[in-house]
Write a protein that binds this DNA or RNA. Structure first.
Lengths: 219, 219
DNA sequence: GCGCATAGTCGACACACTGTCGAGTTTCTC
DNA sequence: GAGAAACTCGACAGTGTGTCGACTATGCGC
């Protein structure tokens, strides 16, 4: 695969050199992939199509990328930042701050709306494609870490009730988001309900005693 | 594909006829599939292996099944009943009946423990394989329908607070279960936490007023 | 201008897996 | 034991993948 790392071009002092023919081709492949992903799932996209879209032969495709999944990985790289953005205020905050959570989820929903196929395709390919699995794991861990820390903080401050270990609860919330957005036709329509549900999961005041009494009952 | 429907054999009055050679072969293929799925994901299993496991040639495989996915569908059929079993008392019950919910989730977790690869493979193949998609949709809908009805019932009886539309909430819970079990290494270790979380999602006593006050605050 | 390295391009090939066909063999049934 | 149905297989065609070696284009030092 062609080096994706942008090697510092010698920069001949004077004129700025435009992108090389190869850079253009690479971009064309990426654009084609994005465009195709908007229309059909990753599994149905073939290297032939990618090559055709970039107006090169199939074998030339391999000059730029190792495989179809390598293209996905490249596409994914640009997405990692986006996915984390706007989550800061919520994750670094304290207590049931619904507006912050809502903003965080809205941003996430917008990304799912625009790039759902890409993400879904990536998730489906993850088992069996280590780079994608790593990408997913890294993203998930980053979110879970911060959310778990937030939960621990809230509990220590008496703002949130006890319950599942912070990490486990954070994982459940992360899973819920992914599954819900992946299944939704209109991710953005889900935001408000997701806010409610996540707040319940985190802050539900479900008295131990009452719960204990209820558990005692037979159905 | 060989007729899977058990045609009533003419039953020659006298002796009971044992399974035909073909029945045995079919079972051998199914068994091989189950066995391979315990070791690696569906995508890595090839028809050659399935055929070899059943000690037939690859082309003979096609006498029994249309494709690898057809085998999965057959395997899935046996699973549908299991997946619904033990959920009755919870789904038909009323109020935060934790023990019933726990039993329902325990049974589900056991299935995921034993057949996780099969289910995960099926879910991954669902987009792009209508029969599997239908299977999944049917199962999901059955669960969502009953759970949504339960939610509506509880709300009408004043046992559960308002919140997302019953159907949406039910979908979120279904999504959460699937995602959580799919991601877990040990599904059964998750049961207790899932009970807590689902009860919170359904019955969280998160006072409107208190929530309202909190929403008012800036982070 | 020439020579040469590097970038870019492609057709042809080898391979893996899928699914079909027709011809063969076995097994039931009358 | 004849004929139908069940079963089996090798050979083939199709599709998608990835590699190779030869060929052309481009930039650069001289």
């Amino acid at each position: 695969m062609r080096d994706t790392v942008m090697v510092m071009t010698p920069a001949p002092a004077g004129r700025r050199r435009g992108p090389s023919k190869g850079d253009l081709r690479e971009k064309a492949i990426l654009d084609t992939a994005r465009e195709l992903l908007a229309r059909k799932p990753l599994a149905e996209i073939t290297i032939d199509e990618l090559a055709a879209g970039a107006e090169i032969s199939r074998s030339t495709f391999y000059f730029y990328f190792d495989s179809k999944l390598a293209v996905v990985v490249a596409l994914l790289h640009g997405l990692a930042d986006e996915l984390g953005r706007d989550a800061g205020p919520w994750l670094d905050g304290t207590g049931p701050d619904a507006p912050a959570l809502r903003r965080s989820l809205s941003a996430l929903a917008a990304i799912w709306r625009d790039q759902g196929r890409l993400i879904a395709g990536a998730l489906a390919a993850a088992p069996g494609c280590p780079p994608i699995a790593r990408w997913r794991a890294g993203l998930r861990e980053a979110h879970v870490d911060r959310l778990a820390a937030r939960i621990a903080r809230d509990r220590a401050a008496g703002l949130a009730p006890d319950g599942p270990a912070p990490r486990v609860l954070a994982e459940l919330i992360d899973d819920l988001r992914t599954a819900a957005f992946a299944a939704a036709t209109d991710p953005e329509a889900l935001v408000d309900d997701l806010v409610t549900v996540e707040l319940r999961m985190l802050y539900a005041d479900f008295p131990e005693t009452a719960l204990g009494r209820m558990i005692g009952q037979a159905p």
